[in-house]
């Protein structure tokens, strides 16, 4: 097993070009879940945590850039994230427990491409852009087009996730995040939901809804969004939003929950978020 800890992006690119099968490390919280024997089969690892370009939170133009290996504890505690992207700060504080948050990263969550990744619905509603770094340079892909299928991403050979760009959200829009698991911490989600929405002149002017653990990939629930935008912001629309959300997903039964419960939980979470929106009650 080969092991590298490059200290510059260039060095990382060279290693990866020489050896495209290296497993990228961005916190190890997915890698180390397997048995130690499983790691025997690894051709090698490339630890990205030492790259300062990939470990930062800073504004660039009108977008907040978050490095792929920045641990969730830093995202959770960042005043910039808390101010402009409260749903992401909330998600970062609900992922795993304290120790996981000290290691796990947005880049790892994206690359692992689990349907239950807690930060992923948030990236969908924030319309995050993913900057991929490859031997030929960088390219930017909307997160929505990055996560292609169950544990499948648009990452090409020799490419790594560099950072995400979060465009400044609409002024005054409300953001919500809710994770439903067997317990408050240290549970993989049964359902995870993010909503970014706004009301102006008494009507819903913006409504971006996404959910995880309800399909093979995290989904933007566009049917619900279309039905909500333009509607009078009255409590009755909350029921409709929940109902439509439950229709829009394709959950499965597995060890953590049933398809029926997932639909039910999603319906309730979306209904409550929408009620809070129309009542303008911050969560």
């Amino acid at each position: 097993m080969k092991a590298f800890a490059p200290r510059s992006l260039d060095e990382a690119m060279v290693r990866l070009t020489e050896d495209p099968d290296l497993r990228l490390l961005a916190g190890c919280t997915d890698l180390m879940v397997g048995e130690p024997e499983d790691r025997l089969g690894l051709p090698g690892v490339l630890d990205l945590r030492g790259l300062s370009e990939l470990r930062r939170i800073e504004w660039h133009d009108d977008a907040l850039e978050i490095g792929a290996v920045t641990p969730f504890s830093q995202i959770r505690d960042s005043p910039e994230v808390q101010k402009s992207f409260p749903a992401l700060a909330e998600a970062a504080s609900k992922i795993g427990g304290w120790q996981i948050q000290n290691r796990a990263s947005l880049g790892g969550n994206m690359a692992n491409a689990s349907p239950a990744g807690d930060s992923l619905p948030v990236l969908l509603v924030l319309e995050a852009q993913v900057v991929l770094v490859g031997p030929e340079g960088t390219r930017t892909v909307p997160y929505r087009e990055f996560h292609l299928g169950y544990r499948q991403t648009a990452l090409g050979p020799g490419e790594i996730i560099g950072w995400v760009r979060l465009p400044k959200p609409p002024e005054n829009a409300m953001q919500f995040f809710r994770k439903v698991g067997a317990r408050e911490a240290q549970a993989i989600s049964k359902v995870v939901v993010a909503l970014l929405a706004d009301v102006s002149d008494g009507r819903v002017s913006e409504y971006r809804l996404a959910a995880g653990s309800v399909a093979e990939v995290p989904l933007r629930l566009t049917e619900v969004e279309k039905a909500m935008v333009g509607r009078a912001a009255k409590a009755e629309i909350a029921n409709l939003a929940g109902h439509l959300a439950a229709q829009a997903v394709r959950p499965i039964d597995d060890v953590r929950s049933t398809a029926e419960y997932r639909r039910f939980a999603l319906e309730q979470v979306v209904r409550r978020m929408t009620l809070q929106l129309v009542r303008r009650v911050p969560e």
Binding site: A5, L25, C28, T29, M32, D47, R49, I100, N102, R103
Partner: peptide, 19 residues
């Protein structure tokens, strides 16, 4: 398995010794 790495709690089962 929690230990402190540079003063911060981390799972030692999820940390490679090399790291």
């Amino acid at each position: 398995c929690t230990v402190l790495v540079d003063g911060v709690p981390r799972y030692s089962c999820m940390t490679l010794a090399l790291e």
